[in-house]
Amino acid sequence: MRVLLVEDEPRLAETVRRGLAAEGFTVQVAATGPDGLRRATDEPFDVIVLDIMLPGLSGYEVLRHLRRTDKMTPVMMLTAKDGEFDQADALDLGADDYLTKPFSFVVLIARLRAMLRRRAPQQPALLEVGDLVLDPVRRAVRRGDRDIVLTFREFGLLEFLMRRPGAVVTKTDLVRGVWDEHYEGPENVVEVYIGYLRKKIDTPFGRNSIRTHRGAGYQLIDDHRPAAACRA
């Protein structure tokens, strides 16, 4: 699950990021309203945690821009404001939930998972590429009628690729999207995990779904059809 956290308090942002990562989320952090809006617009996320008091653009303005462009990613407002009118304003603008600071991390996690379970109908509950099916909420994968057990990192890698079927995805994008922007190790770790993933989703089934494009990146396709015909 990919989370965009838009929070300008560095210590709080890092605490929340680490906590969400420990729960299996891949987290990207933005510290300003404009940066949060850019990332929310340009990148796919499962949920956005959005502070109201932000430099550049307020959380209200970020949310307004997102909903005007039909970006229906679930949004939780995270703020020190606790007045009824603040909550009403956020909900009226299209927020899905509202949590005030200080908050219980257990409650934050529970509410995020609840938001994902009731995600908007515009976002498909399942990702499919041919007979390969991934359920982001249940963290389940199957090919045909067989379940496939993946580690946390393998699951994140497959989900990232399945959200871009047929596209060639660079190592840099995979590291940033699956390992997060704080990862400082070598990008070759992607090759290692692509190998692990192939042994689980391709080799046992006689498939070649994950293609390597040397110098460019990796591509996930339905290997029964041309790449251009793939869908998610």
Rank of each mutant, 00 (worst) to 15 (best):
P44L: 02
E159H: 09
R111W: 14
L63H: 01
L99F: 10
F103K: 00
P204C: 05
D147E: 14
T26C: 06
D135M: 10
R176I: 08
E184K: 02
K71M: 07
C230L: 10
G56S: 03
M77K: 01
D222H: 10
D145N: 06
R207N: 09
R225V: 14
L132I: 14
L20T: 09
T212L: 14
G185E: 02
L4F: 11
P124M: 13
V49R: 03
D70Q: 14
D46I: 04
F45D: 07
V75S: 01
G217H: 12
R113V: 13
L57H: 11
L127F: 14
K101R: 13
F45I: 06
G185F: 01
M77C: 08
R64N: 05
V175D: 02
E181L: 09
W179A: 07
F205G: 01
L93E: 11
L99R: 03
V49N: 02
R231W: 05
I201A: 02
D180C: 01
L37Y: 08
D222C: 08
L20Y: 02
Q87V: 11
P10R: 10
R139E: 13
C230D: 14
G177H: 02
R39F: 06
E154Y: 06
A40V: 04
H224E: 14
R207P: 12
D202M: 04
D70R: 14
A125S: 08
A80M: 05
G24D: 10
R139V: 06
T73Q: 05
G215L: 15
P10N: 11
C230K: 07
M76T: 12
L157N: 09
K71L: 10
L57I: 11
D180S: 05
L54A: 03
P226D: 06
S104Q: 11
L63M: 02
S209R: 12
V29K: 00
L158W: 09
G156V: 03
R118H: 15
E23I: 03
I109R: 15
D131F: 08
L220V: 09
M76P: 09
L158R: 08
R39P: 03
R67W: 13
R111A: 12
G130H: 03
G59R: 05
R11V: 13
L12K: 00
V62E: 12
I52C: 01
D202H: 00
M53T: 12
D131A: 12
L4G: 05
E14F: 11
Q28G: 09
A216L: 15
E84H: 07
L12H: 01
Q219D: 09
A88R: 06
L20N: 04
M76E: 09
R2L: 06
D173W: 02
T170Q: 03
M1K: 04
D222M: 10
Y193M: 03
R176S: 13
M76Q: 12
P204I: 01
H224R: 15
T212P: 14
L12E: 01
T69D: 15
D180N: 08
N208V: 10
R39H: 07
R164Y: 03
F152E: 14
K71I: 13
E43P: 00
Q28M: 06
V175P: 00
A140C: 03
A30S: 04
L20P: 03
P226A: 11
P165C: 06
L99D: 13
P102E: 11
I48T: 04
L174V: 15
R2C: 10
F155S: 10
D46K: 02
G94Q: 00
Y183K: 05
V192P: 00
R163S: 07
L134C: 11
